[in-house]
Design a protein around this nucleic acid. Structure first.
Lengths: 346, 346
DNA sequence: GTGAAAGCGCTAACAA
DNA sequence: TTGTTAGCGCTTTCAC
């Protein structure tokens, strides 16, 4: 609160080291071409004065901010039921700080927020953006594109291929789903149902596609749409039991819905996995391990996703303006592998 | 990627509106004393040019950044099992953006991170800091204090009262615990056990104190220390059943541990709530509603905590330097009420 | 290899 | 009420 002593400037360091500001700047920024003797003197002065560069002044001339916006567009409360969010952030944060970039967090819920975010991005406070939880028809990508910021999306965007220069990182949702279903087949199950996630998100669509890849001729009544919440998992399970009492396995679009399904199965006296085998998706830890019985599920490496998103973005920023830019890796989607984790439910 | 057209400056707007830079600045910053006719002309020019102020240039002179650091010091993975984190962030974010402040997120895990954070804070990039999840003996407060940044803590710091000018926001952990225990007493239980959280966090200590407030002469063997994880809840419950087979109720320090306890109780054939009543703390939704049976628990308004932290900090920033400063509200702790949520477990 | 000097875009005295 | 001007602290040519 009390205004602290004004922090030392380049000028002060220069004076103390008996050199010019330019020299200090060179040393501080690690550009070579400074005689070691001088450099050493400067470093000592920096140390003694506790000098820390003023970022604002630096940005003013470099036009770099060493800051990245992370935009989470989640109007629903789902994010909170989901350790996802925190995990991805951790991954992003690690990568960003390793490269001395700051993480500016932008949480949006409604249209007003979008406008605000648009303004912020256009305001040139950050060098790039990382975006999550897009739903189909989200206006955000449009805004971001207009702001002309390098961007990496988390999760395959629905307009995939539509726009140029779009990078994204995603899990192998389709492949993971296939593994899950094949595992159930391997268990000798053949009346396998699928509870999908909200189909306005590509993750849900891709998992459904994976399911269909394997169950090419599945009874359409064995597929019910949920929305990733436990309640929707319960509803879907009830409907499934109602429609197809003979089912012997369920692949749920995520662990939360699988947990809901487990409850309904128990309620109906079906033993898991004896009568009905259940597989989830995510391996969301507090959930998957705590269900009764513990959940067999498809794990994705969330933190790594975050880390990769950041890495991709920083790489983009670094090659700004170089010739490779046009030729470069271009609009790339990075797909991370998934792993089937066997517990007791299937 | 492609360097966009340089954004218009104050200068450009001034030229277009046929006024001086100073006038444009006044209009943009809403200081009055500009004739409406001129102001209007300036606004139009701003509009036409799509002018957005350069924050770096502004900070350079105002020394304000309109940015707040949010520091989450959680070396463990606990944060991720915990929607807490996301919820508080949401609250903070809302309040901050309502006042045009940016949220810079700093996640720390180890000592190196601390050093980095210290440097960052000292670097004067932000106007204040919001800090969470402190553990006893955390070096962070020291660093922050040294950086001389206005700070608000989430959760009562352990050195409470020790330092001056420390603000914090917390839930009424002690009162909530009392409510939980009284509820169990009201159910006619009298062999009530308590599974504490990690006692290096004040939240756990305060809840234990609340338990003791009511159970003044509790058998010490009825209190077992956990660490907020489900696994610790299981361990603690086993120990309790072993030591005091006659217990008829358990108050767990959070919902995760309560869930673990429920599992062990079931495993031992104790019916809940018939044989043993169980109460949790937090009302962490995906957990509390999904347990078998659903959990009676003490709810805290996490999002509101976040919002209040931000509000407190912004208020501090605003009164910097004014006379009230010394006299002012001073080191204040804001305690939010809790509510007992009745479900089936007690 | 090092220093001098010209800004980066903005705000805030101070004059007019 | 409006304009002029002097920096804020830094990087970066360009001379030396």
């Amino acid at each position: 609160m009390t205004d602290t002593v004004p922090r030392p400037t380049l000028e002060a360091v220069a004076a103390r080291a008996g050199v010019s500001r330019a020299t200090v700047s060179r040393v501080v920024n690690g550009s070579d071409g400074v005689r070691e003797r001088l450099a050493e003197r400067v470093r000592r002065a920096v140390e003694e004065l506790g000098y820390v560069p003023n970022q604002a002044a630096r940005s003013l001339v470099t036009k770099r901010h060493d800051a990245i916006a992370v935009i989470v567009a989640e109007p629903e409360t789902r994010v909170f039921a989901d350790p996802f969010f925190a995990r991805q952030l951790r991954g992003i944060s690690k990568e960003l700080t390793a490269h001395d970039n700051q993480l500016v967090l932008l949480l949006t819920e409604d249209r007003d927020d979008h406008a605000r975010v648009g303004r912020y991005l256009a305001g040139g406070h950050v060098d790039g953006a990382l975006v999550f939880s897009l739903h189909i028809d989200d206006p955000l990508p449009e805004l971001i594109q207009r702001a002309g910021l390098p961007t990496v999306y988390g999760g395959r965007p629905d307009w995939n291929g539509g726009r140029r220069g779009v990078s994204y990182v995603d899990s192998d949702n389709r492949g993971g789903a296939r593994d899950a279903v094949r595992h159930l087949l391997g268990l000798g199950r053949d009346r396998i149902a699928h509870i999908t996630g909200a189909l306005d998100q590509t993750a849900a669509v891709d998992r459904l596609d994976g399911f269909r890849d394997v169950m090419t001729d599945a009874d359409p009544r064995l597929v019910v749409e949920g929305d990733f919440t436990p309640a929707s998992g319960e509803r879907a399970m009830r409907r499934l039991l109602d429609r197809c009492p003979g089912l012997d396995a369920v692949f749920a679009g995520n662990d939360l819905m699988a947990a809901g399904a487990l409850r309904v199965l128990r309620e109906h006296g079906r033993r898991v996995p004896d009568d009905v085998a259940v597989v989830g998706f995510d391996d969301m830890l507090p959930i998957a391990e705590q269900t009764e019985p513990p959940l067999t599920t498809v794990r994705q490496d969330i933190e790594e996703m975050g880390r990769l998103m950041a890495r991709l973005l920083l790489r983009d920023l670094d090659r700004t303006g170089t010739p490779e830019e046009a030729a470069g890796a271009g609009p790339d989607g990075l797909i991370l592998p998934t792993t089937l984790i066997r517990r007791s439910s299937a």
